[in-house]
């Protein structure tokens, strides 16, 4: 392996978030919660959220089993969304998280990277009725029934 290829994907910040995830552990009680899987590789993530006045996200807690990319991305996301409103996060484009990750991702690994964001949006939707991403299509309906 050329060090370049490895370092590009698993840059220090990613490995740090993977090995020392921020906001790790589920909140109880929580105002919003959801879990999700990446069916391709079996990554699992559960997210809990505490909301303050005006539905501002005060705390996020997550747990999961999965690859370095999915776990690190969720860890970074959990810091990123604190202080934002549920409505803002519902509309947050995935590109913002991907920029934060700052690594080149193949389509397969992209799904790993945005799993946590999807689960967070689902949690907020279930608790607050915020919109789900349009590209989820009718599949979103099944997700909410769980």
């Amino acid at each position: 392996m050329t060090t370049g290829e490895f370092d590009q994907l698993y840059r220090e910040l990613i490995l740090d978030h993977y090995k020392n995830p921020r906001n790790h552990g589920l909140l109880d009680p929580a105002d919003a919660r959801a879990e999700g899987q990446n069916p391709l590789c079996g990554d699992e993530i559960a997210v809990t959220v505490r909301l303050g006045a005006g539905d501002v996200i005060e705390e996020v807690g997550f747990e999961g089993r999965g690859c370095a990319i999915s776990q690190a991305a969720t860890s970074m996301l959990s810091d990123l969304v604190k202080g934002r409103t549920a409505g803002e996060v519902a509309l947050m484009p995935k590109e913002e998280l991907l920029n934060e990750l700052g690594i080149p991702l193949t389509p397969v690994r992209l799904k790993c990277a945005i799993l946590g964001l999807g689960v967070l949006k689902l949690a907020l939707h279930k608790a607050k009725g915020t919109p789900l991403p349009e590209e989820w299509g009718t599949a979103a309906k099944d997700l909410v029934l769980d």
């Binding site: 392996m1 290829e5 698993y10 089993r65």
Partner: peptide, 13 residues
Amino acid sequence: VHPHDVAQVLDFE
């Protein structure tokens, strides 16, 4: 180590 990470690093090889 998650299998995805294992396979990814092996792919670099």
